[in-house]
Design a protein around this nucleic acid. Structure first.
Length: 873
RNA sequence: GGAGGCAUAGCUCAGUCGGUUAGAGCGCCUGCUUCACAUGCAGGAGGUCGUAGGUUCGAGUCCUACUGUCUCUACCA
């Protein structure tokens, strides 16, 4: 083994070996229980980013843990066709050649898209492998592969036949850049500076005006009413009157609707049903005409009269100028308001009325809410269920058609001759009604999330009742960030319930966002993103995984920094070197079976600590507390195993009792092996590499059984004894540091105690670890003639002759400090114990503990006081 | 407008069922090239747990209000 941890030299090799051995593949096996995780499919356009790295690492930890626990653990990977995102890429690619979609046509466009997918879609798969992901690549899925496409068609047709999918003209969000409809979830709002224009609308046959306030003057071309609140007295006298729409000259009614707020603007709102979702609703209530004035290219259309062809913003300028000329513009105010943007290209979206396909949500949402309310599905942390309810309870119908080419084409066919519309699972070429062959398939494709919603069962073969679907569905846990609860989690839940009649997963583990060192979101525009692949190249995958997981709490964001990486790397190096220590010492030795070893008090102590950490890690992993589990392992490895146990074994390993030495080596190897198993789900590469260096190792750590807690290994007596000895060692070190004794200076130690056997048994440890030359038992301080420094550790009184290093004044000051501390404790304990409420209501155990503590401190005070007296004498 | 999170050491954060003397990493100070590791070892300093009330024998932990801060959601034109 090399002297320092060097992940570059083994990670690739190890992964290749695991893959070749087929360890990742999960089979239907009735002897075993299934454990299933569906990987949230990354976009084929995407490169691995820190968010993925965290998400995948958490899934890998759970999968490896359950696999080692004997489950048939399936982690099913896949990629998403990412309709809009990919289409944008292909359009860009065409643009570079001076071409447009229209130039090449649908067929060629799709050919290019598939070619693009073949070329780049695998990139992220390779990156996932570098991270160590133990997913079953033999089941790699793609949202547009045959399996998934069949499921999409099945679901579409079923929903249509149940009346849950319909086609209609509704107001939708339109991205003028992507030239497609978007669902509500695909619009992102951000506050922007804008203006509020106050415009006079003349009242017909009078010289009065109603002034309306609007942030979008250009849409006035499509106004079909002005609305006021029915309770607004200012306008009561105008109700029922007709207004003249300026510039257009059209007559429009003044209506009343409770939606209008009296205290914003003028209390009068122009109603443009075609370009505002609220106005659309008002229009429906009042039977208003819907006039589209903005086209899908973001320009004013033929309904806009002379403004036709202008871009919306240009039209706004011209219209405002003209209103001003006509004296109809009252004023312009600054206004900050939220503007919707396309989540893919960030263009401002235009609400407009358009004929689209929708999923009726209410009947699907209700059971999906029930499933979470009845705890069939549990969110971790729980609070995210509130976010889920909030959305589900207010969800509107889902616009699923997109005016794109890359995606699942809507399985609806129109007959050009008789106009018949056929919704079909398979392509049709003949009209079932008139027999015509003039059949056209709907031009549009489905929202990407329509296919992702089916992911937990489409990947397992649905609609066929495959053995895999039967065995692995419902899945166990879905791991994802809170940013896609609406997009994806919610939709999988209602889809699973609707089509499988069963929940898609039992648990949803929500993790936070990976932020930069300053706590900012990593983003392309800020340029503060960190490429996981660069980190892997520099530090190794284990270090990256460790940095992302150590100490995190479910649902909370985490900061990612170079310092953290270095700390993690140092931990890898620590494990590496601890292992090197064990293995170098064990070389060419005749190591006895661990089971046959006679254990020392130090051995039992580390085994007890190991047993404890086994329990903690297991419990925490089952609670999805990966951060706590790993932090506990870190502490165990660094503090217990390295700082203490390895140091404790040194006098034995370098001593001359060969038998004892070999037994100790056996314990060291045992603890190391168990520790590697515990760590393996978190940092698979370095643990496997070390494991392969252990003599008589098994085939692979991946297929080892995860360590099990065993109450027999708690050794409470030896654990407490050893901890006392450790306290003694720390106490001596403390004194040495305080008086400034050189590390090379060996000291004599006088001990007064009832527990001489323990000290005798552990003398080698005290000598080696505290720089003690000789231990002498005394009956009392009066036996001492030398000048000493003392330390009271529980039932041990320690005296160290330090000659000229002893500064009596300093000693007295130190002891007085000790005295004060102990007296504070006595006071605290006394206060508690003289409180009747505490004595009566607190658990007996606690009261007893407090009493013991009090006695201990009183005892200590007595000794300290005696010490002080002896110095002052 | 609605909902939620967070506030603990200089910094970043843990703190599980309300119950030891409130912890870690980094940083800081002191000393160590001790035969696994200076990517290290030993010792140390550093806290009124945001503020004010309340519940309780007991509150960092539960409740209420407030302050600060972040996020989601809605879209009053």
């Amino acid at each position: 083994m090399e002297k320092t941890y060097n992940p570059g030299s083994f990670e690739k090799e190890i992964y290749k070996n695991w893959e070749e051995k087929g360890y990742f593949n999960a089979e239907v096996n009735t002897e075993k229980l299934p454990f299933t995780i569906m990987m949230p499919p990354p976009n084929i356009t995407g490169q691995l980013h820190m968010g993925h790295a965290l998400d995948e690492t958490l899934q890998d930890i759970l999968t490896r843990f359950m696999r080692m626990n004997g489950y048939s653990a399936l982690w099913l990977p896949g990629t998403d066709h990412a309709s809009i995102a990919t289409e944008v890429k292909i359009v860009e690619q065409l643009a570079e050649e001076g071409l447009t979609k229209a130039d090449v046509g649908r067929e060629e466009f799709l050919r290019r898209a598939w070619a693009w997918k073949e070329k780049y879609g695998g990139r992220i798969v390779e990156q996932l492998k570098c991270l160590g992901s133990s997913c079953d690549w033999s089941k790699l899925a793609f949202t547009m592969d045959e399996r998934c496409s069949r499921a999409v068609r099945e679901v579409f047709v079923n929903l249509y036949e149940k009346g849950l999918i319909y086609r209609g003209a509704r107001i939708i969000n339109w991205c003028p850049e992507c030239k497609t409809a978007l669902s509500d979830a695909e619009v992102e709002y951000s506050e922007e500076a804008s203006s509020l224009w106050y415009i006079k609308y003349p009242v017909k046959d009078s010289d009065e005006f109603i002034t309306v306030a609007t942030s979008r003057p250009e849409t006035m071309l499509g106004d079909t009413a002005v609305a006021v609140n029915p309770k607004d007295k200012r306008y009561t006298k105008f109700l029922g009157k007709t207004l003249i729409l300026p510039l257009v000259g059209k007559e429009i009614p003044l209506i009343d609707d409770a939606y209008v707020e009296t205290d914003f603007g003028t209390g009068a709102v122009k109603i443009t049903p075609a370009h505002d979702p609220n106005d659309f609703e008002v229009g429906l209530r009042h039977g208003l005409e819907v006039i589209n004035v903005l086209g899908e290219d973001g320009r004013v259309n033929e309904n806009g009269g002379k403004y036709c062809g202008m871009k919306a913003l240009d039209a706004r300028k011209v219209i405002v100028e003209e209103l001003e000329r006509q004296g109809l513009l009252v004023k312009k105010e600054e206004l900050r308001h939220n503007v919707g943007h396309c989540y893919r290209c960030h263009t401002v979206v235009e609400p407009l009325v358009s004929k689209q396909w929708f999923v009726k949500m209410k009947p699907l949402a209700d059971p999906a809410i029930e499933a979470v309310k009845k705890k069939k599905i549990a969110f971790t942390p729980q609070r995210f269920s509130k976010i889920y309810y909030n959305w589900m309870e207010n969800v509107k119908d889902w616009c699923i058609s997109r005016q794109l080419w890359w995606g699942h084409r809507i399985p609806v066919f129109y007959c050009d001759d008789c106009g018949e519309m056929t919704v079909s699972k398979t392509d049709i070429t003949v009209c079932p009604k008139c027999g015509s062959t003039h059949i056209r398939q709907d031009e549009d494709v489905l929202d990407t999330w329509f296919s992702s919603a089916l992911w937990p069962f489409s990947t397992l073969g649905y609609p066929e009742k495959t053995a895999e679907l039967e065995y692995f569905y419902p899945t166990d846990v879905l791991v994802t960030g809170y940013d896609i609860i609406f997009f994806w989690v919610a939709r999988m839940i209602f889809s699973g319930l609707e089509h499988m009649k069963r929940i898609p997963f039992k648990d949803v583990l929500i993790h936070g966002l990976v932020r930069d060192a300053q706590g900012r979101k990593m983003s392309k525009s800020l340029g503060n993103g960190v490429d996981p692949m660069e980190i892997i190249a520099k530090y190794g995958a284990d270090t990256l995984r460790f940095s992302l997981v150590n100490g995190i709490a479910p649902g909370s964001d985490l900061r990612f920094s170079e310092e953290k990486l270095e700390g993690s790397r140092n931990f890898m190096n620590k494990i590496w070197n601890a292992s090197r220590f064990v293995l170098l010492n064990a070389q060419d030795k005749d190591i006895p079976d661990f089971a046959s070893c006679r254990l020392t008090v130090a051995d039992k102590w580390i085994l007890a600590k190991l047993n404890r950490v086994i329990r903690e890690v297991t419990i925490n992993l089952k609670k999805y507390e990966m951060g706590i589990a790993l932090a506990q392992l870190y502490d165990f490895v660094w503090s217990d195993f390295c700082d203490w146990y390895i140091e404790l074994t040194k006098p034995v390993l370098y001593g001359d009792d060969e038998n004892l030495r070999n037994q100790t080596l056996s314990v060291l190897i045992h603890v190391l092996e168990e520790t590697l198993k515990l760590l393996h789900p978190f940092i698979p590469f370095v643990t496997e590499e070390i494991y392969q260096n252990i003599p008589s190792h098994g085939e692979s750590l991946m297929i080892c059984e995860f360590p099990r807690f065993n109450a027999k290994n708690n050794y409470p007596k030896q654990k407490a004894d050893m901890e006392s000895v450790m306290e003694i060692i720390k106490g001596i070190r403390n004194i040495r540091a305080q008086v400034g004794a050189a590390p090379s200076k060996k000291v004599k130690l006088y001990v007064k105690t009832q527990m001489r056997k323990l000290i005798k048994d552990t003398a080698v440890y005290i000598e080696k670890l505290a720089g003690v030359q000789e231990i002498v038992f005394i009956a009392g301080k009066e036996d001492l003639t030398e000048k000493t420094v003392s330390q009271i550790i529980n039932e041990f009184e320690l005296y160290i002759p330090l000659g000229e290093l002893v500064d009596t004044d300093k000693e007295i000051a130190r002891l007085k400090g000790e005295k004060e501390r102990v007296e504070n404790e006595i006071q605290r304990a006394n206060a508690k114990l003289s409180n009747n409420g505490f004595l009566e209501k607190a658990p007996k155990e606690l009261v007893n503990k407090e009493r013991e503590k009090l006695n201990k401190f009183i005892e200590m005070r007595k000794k300290i006081l005696a010490e002080i007296k002896s110095y002052e004498a």
